[in-house]
Design a binder for these strands. Structure first.
Length: 259
DNA sequence: ATGGTTGCCGCGCAA
């Protein structure tokens, strides 16, 4: 079972690139971020015709997350618990009823810039709520994957030019400490645990020829519960997608599980 | 490089 995360930066803008990648990569489950669409405008039929179930948690213009799955989805939850006043669509959770029962939590963690400021405070508060949700689901001792755009550069080796990010909300010490706390709950970061190499990136800014210059960062992650980590067979970053026609600024990241 | 680019039912903002 192949499970992926992909920040598409707008479903309308990716109406060709996303199906193209789905046909090539054949993932069973995909968590999408930044669909930038309300539920009613999401082209669900397009993906249903490709054999996917579709669950969305949309928002007008900004944010918005979704899950595509070749297997039935149940127990769908929209919105990260812990703050009833939070209106931003950044969290969707579902139980995938495949050969393995796996819970997937698709997340779009706030960017947080500029820092310091209210946006950074919101990011840190959101990360605290995420940690609480992780604790609650880890207590079930079942396969769970928390995957998406974390907007966190975990270490200096996760940026081509780490010195350019020292004041950025994606790389500030408080941000990295909050991410480290999540790993310390007992979660395994799928890509890094399988590949310690430098130069693994998942995002290249549209600006300043970042892609051509190799100026990337690694901010899209899959965090696995112990029961999910035990099933990992392979991980990957579909870097070539960034060189395709009308690409997102992020590329897909995936894990293949046993069975 | 105080710029640069992309997407959003835009009229600036978020990334």
């Amino acid at each position: 079972m192949k499970i992926a995360t992909f920040n598409i930066n707008g479903i309308k803008a990716r109406i060709e690139a996303l199906p193209r990648w789905l046909n090539e990569a054949q993932p069973d489950v995909v968590c999408l971020q930044e669909i930038k669409s309300i539920d009613e405008n999401f082209p669900r039929e397009l993906f249903e015709e490709m054999g996917y179930r579709v669950e969305t948690h949309g928002q007008k213009s900004f944010n918005g997350v979704a899950i595509l799955s070749k297997y039935p989805l149940s127990d769908v939850t929209r919105g990260l618990p812990g703050d009833e006043t939070d209106e931003q669509a950044r969290w969707i959770e579902a139980l995938v009823e495949g050969p393995q029962l796996v819970r997937v939590c698709g997340l779009y963690l706030p960017n947080g810039n500029p820092a310091p400021g209210p946006k950074y405070e919101y990011k840190l508060a959101w990360m605290a709520r995420l940690e609480e949700r992780m604790k609650a689901l880890l207590a079930l001792e079942e396969p769970v994957i928390f995957l998406g755009d974390y907007n966190v550069i975990p270490q200096a080796i996760d940026a081509a030019r780490p010195e350019a990010w020292t004041e950025d909300a994606l790389f500030l010490p408080q941000t990295r400490a909050a991410f480290r706390r999540m790993l310390n709950l007992g979660l395994t970061e799928a890509v890094r645990t399988r590949n310690p190499a430098q130069g693994l990136y998942t995002f290249w800014d549209y600006q300043a020829n970042s892609w051509e210059r190799g100026n990337g960062i690694r901010i899209d992650h899959l965090l696995m519960s112990p029961q999910a980590a035990d099933l990992i067979e392979e991980t990957g970053i579909d870097k070539d997608v960034r060189a395709g026609d009308k690409p997102s600024d992020h590329v897909p990241v995936w894990v293949r599980l046993a069975a």
